[in-house]
């Protein structure tokens, strides 16, 4: 055994060696602070550069059509010019397609994700809950092109098509379900989007529900609540802001999803109220036409990009306002 190891200084005067100004703390913390602050700023700079660059590239289109003319115009005719804007560019059909498919997706996925999350946290036998949760989270990692392929080649013809035919037969008189049923269209795109965003939303809602304090639930049980009452009156209200966060994340993904929508929405430039109709979303239209676009059209696609950014932002702000307003009336501290 090495016994010659230098002994720690023992004498009091030894312990007073050095000056108080030479410690590591004077440098280490400021350096760490600047690194972290730098990373934070970098994100903002990238975002600003992106917004400025796309907006300035898209500017000629906005200049010709007018800002609202571009957003609300529903005619899209590409021109072939290299230097000026000769076509007509109205992005409304794509904005509409984006909003409709995302709305369908969220309307289906939100209640489903809450129910699955409640099942996983409160109902499933413990032996099943863990593997099921992992599976759900795994699903969130499946690339969207796979959802698109599966949706188009199996789910659409085997499940959705028969369902749509039936739906059209029963509710065809209602403008949302007016025929003809073409197969691809807003509804199948929205449904596949719902399946796509379900895992990530479920994972978040499950997480939020799982961390709800058990003692509050016990208090509710001790007052004679049924499990249903504990979940709907105690657990879910307390999880409200988390559920909205999950919905916002799902909505963000649904709004921006490109490839699966491209494969299922039909790719037309039309728009109409019927959910069986075909159309395009903003992202799918960009992806579908960017390759062969003339310089002029490319500018117009850039403008769609700007519009998509705006729409996503507005939807997010709206959601936040809703949470904030509801939180105010409920006296919810957790917003």
């Amino acid at each position: 055994m090495p016994t010659e190891a230098p002994e720690a200084p023992q004498a009091p005067e030894e312990r007073r060696r050095g000056t108080l100004t030479s410690g590591r703390g004077r440098l280490a913390d400021p350096i760490f602070k600047w690194i972290v602050a730098g990373c934070g700023t970098l994100v903002l700079i990238i975002l600003a550069l992106m917004v400025i660059r796309t907006t300035s590239e898209a500017w000629p289109v906005f200049a010709k059509e007018g800002f609202f003319g571009f957003l609300l115009g529903d005619e899209w005719t590409s021109g072939g010019s290299r230097t000026e804007i000769t076509g007509t560019y109205g992005a409304w059909p794509f904005i509409y397609g984006t909003l409709v498919t995302a709305a369908i997706a969220i309307v289906i996925a939100l209640p489903l994700s809450i129910m699955v999350a409640v099942y996983l946290t409160h109902m499933a036998p413990p032996r099943l809950a863990k593997p099921l949760s992992y599976t759900v989270e795994l699903l969130a990692a499946v690339p969207s092109v796979i959802f698109g392929l599966w949706g188009l080649h199996w789910f659409l013809p085997n499940v959705m098509r028969p369902f749509f035919d039936w739906l059209e037969g029963v509710l065809g008189w209602f403008f949302l379900f007016e025929g003809p049923v073409l197969g691809v269209g807003y509804l199948p795109a929205g449904i596949v989007l719902a399946i796509m965003i379900l895992p990530i939303m479920t994972a978040i809602v499950r997480e939020v529900i799982a961390v709800q304090p058990l003692d509050q639930q016990m208090a509710a049980y001790a007052m004679g609540s049924t499990r249903w009452e504990v979940i709907t009156k105690v657990v879910l209200p307390a999880s409200f802001s988390g559920i909205v966060a999950a919905a916002m994340l799902g909505l963000g993904r649904a709004l921006g999803e490109t490839i699966a929508v491209l494969m299922l929405i039909g790719g037309s430039q039309a728009w109409g109220a019927s959910l069986f109709g075909t159309g395009s979303s903003m992202a799918s239209h960009i992806a579908a036409t960017f390759g062969e676009a003339t310089p002029e059209t490319r500018t117009a696609l850039m403008a769609i990009g700007v519009a998509l950014f705006l729409v996503t932002m507005i939807v997010n702000i709206l959601a936040r306002v809703i949470v904030w307003r509801l939180g105010q009336t409920k006296g919810d501290a957790a917003v």
């Binding site: 003692d215 016990m218 105690v234 919810d332």
Partner: peptide
């Protein structure tokens, strides 16, 4: 049973309401 036989717990556990 629990309606008739109430319970108060170790840590105060009011609802966030």
């Amino acid at each position: 049973v629990r309606r008739r036989i109430g319970m108060v717990f170790q840590k105060p556990n009011p609802f966030p309401k």
